[in-house]
Design a binder for these strands. Structure first.
Lengths: 102, 102
DNA sequence: ACCGTAGTACGGTCAACGTCGTACTACGGT
DNA sequence: ACCGTAGTACGACGTTGACCGTACTACGGT
């Protein structure tokens, strides 16, 4: 739905923003889910004990940090992890985070 | 100086706390400095544009998250990165963070 | 054309955090 | 014994951030 949302280019992704994005438990959970179902996922299909607007808020943080990419598809938006970009910039970071014991 | 400060055991280190600790620019800078001068360093010898009490505050966060180890030595305290523990728990995370362009 | 579904935008609230100054403690040197 | 240096503890202040509800927009199906 709506327009394409702005995403930082790979070169514009800053480690501070990525870490801040990942530091929140709710967002970390989202990222873990995105990593698990690797195919890209409708924003709303990750169930979380938060309201719609709060989910939008978190997705915005993740998107603006360069952690996820969000593209419109019909009436939904598909969210994917920006694995390539993150691995290129901070090799090992994502895997390290995902390797965390639960 | 003072008593030994409490540190989490390796098994007690939680990824959320580590990420939150690293998310602050000032703390990230500290960690980078600690990684650069690998030998362990007096707390105060990293120069930062913050007050003494704020530095203590940040070191506390890093210590309680399990990112650094702080041991008394004479009138000072020596701070070291807990590389082994972090690498064991979250392989690649630390290197990924440190690999960040600046 | 209309309605439902998916999501954003905005405004407000409350807690958490970064920052500081001041007061205190601990250790070493003279 | 005393002073200086290194650091912690505590309380205050301002800002940021997570969360919500409500109002709005966009797209698809009937």
């Amino acid at each position: 739905m709506g327009q394409d949302l702005p995403h930082p280019e790979r070169a514009e992704i800053r480690i501070e923003a990525v870490l801040a994005a990942l530091a929140d438990p709710m967002r970390l959970h989202m990222v873990r889910e995105l990593a698990r179902l690797d195919t890209g996922v409708a924003c709303g299909s990750i169930d979380l004990p938060i309201s719609k607007s709060t989910r939008t808020h978190h997705l915005r943080i993740l998107r603006e940090a360069g952690v996820v990419r969000i593209r419109p598809e019909g009436t939904s938006r598909i969210t994917t992890l920006r694995r390539d970009d993150l691995n290129a910039l901070f090799p090992g970071l994502l895997d390290g985070v995902l390797a965390a014991p639960r």
